[in-house]
Structures are given as C-alpha cells and as structure tokens.
Design a protein around this nucleic acid. Structure first.
Lengths: 233, 233
DNA sequence: AAGTGGTCTAGACCACTCC
DNA sequence: GAGTGGTCTAGACCACTTG
C-alpha cells in the first residue's frame, strides 16, 4: 500500500498513452475504471495527474485524449508573437478587459505613483494554435501613457507600441515564477479544468533610467506551457 | 453551481487563515467539514488547493497548519548555499544516491559522450531551515571528472568543487521550467503529500568552450519555492 | 436522448503521530 | 488507544457535447 493505487493506475495509463498516438481518444473513465478494477474516483486521480503532467487532455462531453507536447516559451523580454511564431505556432490575443482603475498601495509603489492614481488594467488571453494558453494582466500608469487606449492595437504587441509610440527604452526586468491553482474565473477563461496547476509569472520591466514601465501578472496553463531561461555566469 | 462548492469553501478558508497567524493549527478536516456543512471530500479539495498554493501545510497524524511564505530562489548559475543564506535561511544537503551508471542515448548526446559511457548520478535532497524543498539529480561524465568521488564533499557545493578542483570555467547555461506531479518516491523524499504540483527544472550548463559540463534535473516543491529571473533586453 | 467528464455525498479503512 | 490526515469505494446528480 506504500504506493497508492492511483499511481499504479497512472503507470499503466502511461503505457496505454504511449501505444496510442497524439490526439487519440481514450475509453470513457467509467469503462477504464471497470477494466482496471478500480473505482471511478481512483481512475480520475490518475487521469488528473496525467492531465497536470501534460500527457492527457479532457474535454467535457467529448472524452479524454492524448495531449500534444508542451509549448516552450522564452523567459525573456521578447515579443510573445515572435517567440511563438519562431516555433511554428500560430499566436493570437483576445482582450478580456481594458479598464482604468485606481492604484492600490502595492501597485502604486511598484509603478512609482501615488496610491489612487489611475492605471490601465489590460487583461488579455494568449492563444497558441487557437488554444488558450495564458492570461496576461498588464498594469501601466495612465499619466505616463495617456493616449494608450487610442494608439494600441489591443490584439497586437504592447511592447512594440510602447517603444514605437512612446519611445520607451526597455532596460532590465525581473520575473518571479511560481505554481498556483487558478480561480474558477481564470480556469474558465483558459478553458482549463478546475484544480489544474498553473505557472504564475510576476514581471516588472524597467526602462534604461530604472523607472518601472509595467507590472505584469501572467498565468499560464501548467499542462500546456513550459519556460526556457538562459543562465549567465 | 457555476462556482464549485469547494471553491466557496476555499474562499472562506482563506479568511480563516488570515485571522490565524503563521504556524497556527486548523481544526481537523472532519470538524471543518461539519462546520461548513460539506462533505469531507469537498473540504479536502479546498484544503488541497490551499496546500498547492502554499497557504496551508498538512502533516499526517498531526494536523493542518498555516504555512510560511514561499522561499524565492534565483534562476541563475549561483551557489544554492549562498543564495539561501543571503535570504536568511539555513541551507543543507543530503546525499540520496551517488552512482556510476551507463549513459542512455539522450544523456550521451547532451554530455557529448558515447551511449553506454559511464556517468555519475548524484542525487541530493536540498533543505532550507531543515525542511526539504528540492531534489537535485546531477549527471556528469566520469571520463571528464574521474576523481570526483574522492574530491567532492557531497554535502558541499558541486560548483565550487568543479571550479576549484577541476578548473572548470562556467559559461552559459540553459534552464527549462515546468510543472509536474511528483512520483511517490519523489514525494516521499521531499516529505510532501501526493498529488502536489512541483516545479521541474532541467538545466544544462556549459563551459566557456561550449562543452556541456553537467545535466541537472531539479524538482522543487511548488508549495514552498518560487524562482526569480532577471530579464535582459 | 445518450454519453461524456465534473462535482459531491456518506462511509470505510489505512498510516502516522502523540499520549 | 485516540486522533489526525491519506486513500479508496459505490453511487448520485450536474453540465456539456454530439447525434
């Protein structure tokens, strides 16, 4: 019993997955559970792990399928669009929210403005090959970029807009990476199942004068995305 | 019903957590479930999410407790020991395995040796403040570092040993970050509960001649650790 | 309407820790 | 032994997709 039953089931499912090809459908949970001689709950534990690992993919009402490999994104100050294209994927963005909100204390300090000052909150879903893979929320000072709403093609590159229209010079940035569980709203926007581990990136980019340009919170589907960083000595 | 019950419970548990202090004990699951008017399974879903988020911490036979904040590690070619000390934590390592194994095809290609050539497999549990936070498995060519077993203090810094004893000059490295679910063995070594999301880092470091020095697979507890990267334009 | 995955219940037993 | 979290069962109903 030291090895849980659902892990034994997971191991056997991996063999099954490797026999089937990418995109193949698995038998229904209830059938698999009966075949393996376990309860549906135990089977779902195993399937849930394989979904989190990016090996399987479940679609309600349709079935469970063998997943395609994860997409690897660079952990760097580069364009989402270009990075994705470079790997043969089709990038897309969809604006969920583009509001002006008052800065809370934390945000105000990060952006070096006063609490209550207006900031843009731009929330966009990132797609790769028409699949949602991330949810990016960007905060920018309205005072610094007053005409942003007019000059930004909200489905286009924000970085290109900032450099091209506002003459911003990007300097160093800092990014924090951690795992979290998405809220129901976030899971729904990403068309992901509940309880799925996500990669949360918190980014602050500064210009060459050291002033913070933007604060970004990016939530990526842990089952679909990984990141690559280049290490320097 | 669009918001799952376990998420409502999770939200209420967060309020409870914020009232209690770090390290405080929560009532037993069965009691909480009864108090909240839900089944134990639903309560455990909520608790499981909070554990994954790093807000709670469960110890079998003892209870569930409010967790301390995550430790943030640098994503760079720096000493584990020094990085941890710099943040006021007490680092430690424990050797789990130090074997010579034949390289499989993938490893051989990565290390630029022939398949079957011997490689060291050094597996160590990383501790912070006496808590296991990561499991690091390092692969090195035996031919290149034949006396490694004699000259390495296995609980000390491998990097210091390689530079000091073998004159290695570290150049660029590459690191992949993704989320995975730990195997039972890995979970046990990390004293983590099953099903917990982990951060898996796959690193290859090269010397200044571009030769790969080591291949490293690091598995960190997603509930205890985050990473910080510096972005350059 | 039928079949799929998603959520939830009630209850059982196991494994571990502490008294 | 008592109490805790960890695993597992059987079964129900909901939500979604397809025919």
């Amino acid at each position: 019993m030291s090895v849980p039953l659902h892990y034994v089931v997971k191991t056997r499912l991996v063999e099954l997955i490797e026999q089937l090809g990418e995109g193949s459908g698995l038998p229904p949970e209830r059938v698999l559970a009966k075949d393996f001689g376990v309860s549906r709950w135990t089977m779902r534990q195993a399937i849930r792990e394989l979904i989190a690992d990016g090996r399987l993919r479940a679609r309600q009402g349709q079935g469970t399928f063998v997943a395609t490999p994860k997409i690897v994104q660079p952990l760097a100050l580069v364009s989402y669009t270009e990075a994705l294209r470079a790997q043969g994927h089709v990038p897309a963005r969809e604006v969920v929210k583009f509001d002006e909100i008052p800065a809370d204390d934390v945000l105000a300090e990060q952006l070096a403005i006063a609490p209550g000052d207006p900031v843009f909150e731009l929330e966009r879903v990132l797609f790769a090959d028409e699949q949602p893979i991330g949810l990016e929320t960007t905060y920018l000072s309205v005072a610094r970029f007053p005409t942003l709403r007019e000059v930004l093609d909200a489905t286009g590159s924000l970085y290109r807009c900032l450099t091209g229209q506002f003459g911003v010079q990007f300097g160093e940035g800092e990014e924090l990476v951690e795992t979290v569980i998405a809220s129901p709203r976030e899971a729904e926007l990403l068309k992901a199942t509940q309880q799925l581990p996500m990669l949360l990136l918190h980014r602050q980019t500064r210009d060459t004068d050291g002033r913070t340009i933007e604060v970004v919170r990016s939530l990526y589907r842990g089952d679909r995305v990984g990141f690559r960083a280049t290490l320097r000595p």
